[in-house]
C-alpha cells in the first residue's frame, strides 16, 4: 500500500541572505522513483541535502513517515545517499566500503558477508570485493557507491546527479540499471539531475525546479506534453514559444492567423505564450497551403534533422526526418492538439 513517505512543507534555505530554496512543498510516495529536475543553481541539490540531513532548513519542515526530522542528524535518518563524486573511502577496499554502514550497526560478520554479496550482485560487481577503489573505472566506482548505500536497506535512497561523470553510453546503461534496481528493491528513490532526458527515462514523478521554486510536478508524460509554464516548456525538450492572442476558447491568434487549439479558460483576447514542439511540426514543399516560410539552416543530428524556418513573423525550430535545402520555400503544418497555450510570464 503506497503512502506519503516523505513530505516537504514550506521548506526554505538561505545562504548569506540569498534564498536558495524558496518555500517549496511536495510529497514523495513510497516505492516511487521521483526526480527533482532543474538547471544548475535551482536548489535541487540543496533540497536533497536537507532531506538527507546534511543541511539544516531555515524554515519549514521535512516529514519522514509523518514524523518531523528537521533536527535529526543524517546518521540517524533511515535514508542513504549516493553522492555526485561517489565519496568512496580511499583507504578501504570495495568490500569494506560496502560493509561500512553494516559494521556500524554491529551486524554479525556472516550476515555482512551475505548482504555485501547481495549488493554486489545487484550492481553486477561480484568478484570485486578485494579490489582497491582506485583500481576500478568511474562507472564501477559509481556502482560501488550505489551498493554501499543500498546494502543498508534504507527506506529512501537519495541520488545526487550520480551519472554526471560517465560517458553517454554508460549513462544510458546505468539509467536502465538504476530503474531496475529501484523496482527490484522496492525502495523509494529521490533522484536529482539537470538532464531532462534522464528524468523522463527513469522517473515515475518529476518535480521541476527553478530559482528555488517548484515549477511543475507530474509524470514524465504530463510534464512533456502539458507543460504548465514557459520555463517547463523550454526546459523539457525543445520548444517553440511564440507570442499569441487568445481570441476565444479554442481559438488562438498567432503567425498572423487564427488556429484551432484545444485549450480554454483564458480571457477573451488575452496575451499568451504559444508552445509547439519541434517534432510535432511537419514541413511540406507544397507551398499552396499552411504557413509559408524559408529554410534558414539545416543540421544533421543523427536521429533527425534540426531545421530553422523563418516566416514573416517568427523563427521556427523543427525536428524532422525529412531533409530540406537551405533557402527552400516550405509550408509549416501542425494539428490543434500540438498547440499548448500558456499564461504569459508564468
Amino acid at each position: 500500500m503506497s503512502y506519503q513517505i516523505i513530505k516537504v512543507n514550506n521548506l526554505v534555505k538561505k545562504y548569506d541572505n540569498e534564498v536558495v530554496v524558496d518555500n517549496i512543498n511536495f510529497y514523495v510516495n513510497s516505492e516511487e522513483f521521483v526526480t527533482i529536475l532543474g538547471p544548475s543553481g535551482c536548489g535541487k541539490t540543496t533540497t536533497l541535502r536537507m532531506i538527507g540531513g546534511f543541511e539544516v532548513p531555515d524554515g519549514g519542515e521535512i516529514l519522514f513517515k509523518d514524523k518531523r526530522v528537521n533536527d535529526i542528524p543524517s546518521n540517524k535518518r533511515d535514508v542513504n545517499t549516493v553522492f555526485q563524486k561517489y565519496a568512496l573511502f580511499p583507504h578501504l577496499n570495495i568490500y569494506e566500503n560496502i560493509a561500512f554502514g553494516l559494521r556500524i550497526k554491529k551486524i554479525k560478520e556472516s550476515e555482512i558477508k551475505n548482504r555485501v554479496r547481495e549488493a554486489l550482485e545487484m550492481v553486477r560487481l561480484v568478484g570485486y570485493e578485494k579490489r582497491s577503489i582506485n583500481a576500478i573505472s568511474g562507472g564501477q566506482q559509481q556502482r560501488v557507491a550505489i551498493a554501499r548505500a543500498i546494502v543498508n536497506k534504507p527506506k529512501v535512497l537519495l541520488l545526487d546527479e550520480p551519472l554526471g561523470a560517465l560517458d553517454l553510453k554508460l549513462r544510458k546503461t546505468m539509467q536502465i540499471e538504476l530503474k531496475r534496481m529501484q523496482q527490484q528493491l522496492g525502495i523509494t528513490f529521490i533522484y536529482v539531475t539537470h538532464d531532462q532526458e534522464e528524468a523522463l527515462t527513469m522517473s515515475d514523478t518529476i518535480i521541476v525546479m527553478n530559482d528555488g521554486k517548484i515549477q511543475q510536478i507530474g509524470t514524465p508524460i504530463d510534464i512533456y506534453n502539458e507543460p504548465e509554464n514557459a520555463f517547463v516548456a523550454d526546459f523539457i525538450g525543445e520548444s517553440n514559444i511564440f507570442d499569441g492572442v487568445m481570441k476565444e476558447d479554442y481559438k488562438i491568434f498567432f503567425e498572423n492567423g487564427t488556429f484551432e487549439c484545444v485549450d480554454s479558460g483564458f480571457n477573451k483576447n488575452e496575451n499568451v505564450d504559444v508552445v509547439i514542439r519541434p517534432e510535432d511540426i511537419n514541413l511540406s514543399s507544397n507551398i499552396d497551403d499552411g504557413i509559408l516560410g524559408k529554410v534558414k539552416s539545416v543540421i544533421f543530428k543523427g536521429v533527425h534533422y534540426e531545421m530553422v524556418v523563418e516566416t514573416n513573423f517568427n523563427k521556427w525550430l523543427i525536428h524532422s526526418t525529412k531533409c530540406f535545402k537551405i533557402g527552400e520555400k516550405v509550408s509549416i503544418f501542425f494539428t490543434p492538439e500540438d498547440i499548448h497555450i500558456m499564461r504569459k510570464g508564468e
Binding site: 543524517s74 546518521n75 568512496l88 580511499p90 554501499r148
Partner: peptide, 15 residues
C-alpha cells in the same frame, strides 16, 4: 581528502 567522505560516513550511520 575526497569530497563528501565524512558526510558519506555519517550518511551510513557513523557518529
Amino acid at each position: 581528502m575526497p569530497l563528501n567522505t565524512v558526510e558519506a560516513a555519517m550518511d551510513l550511520g557513523a557518529s
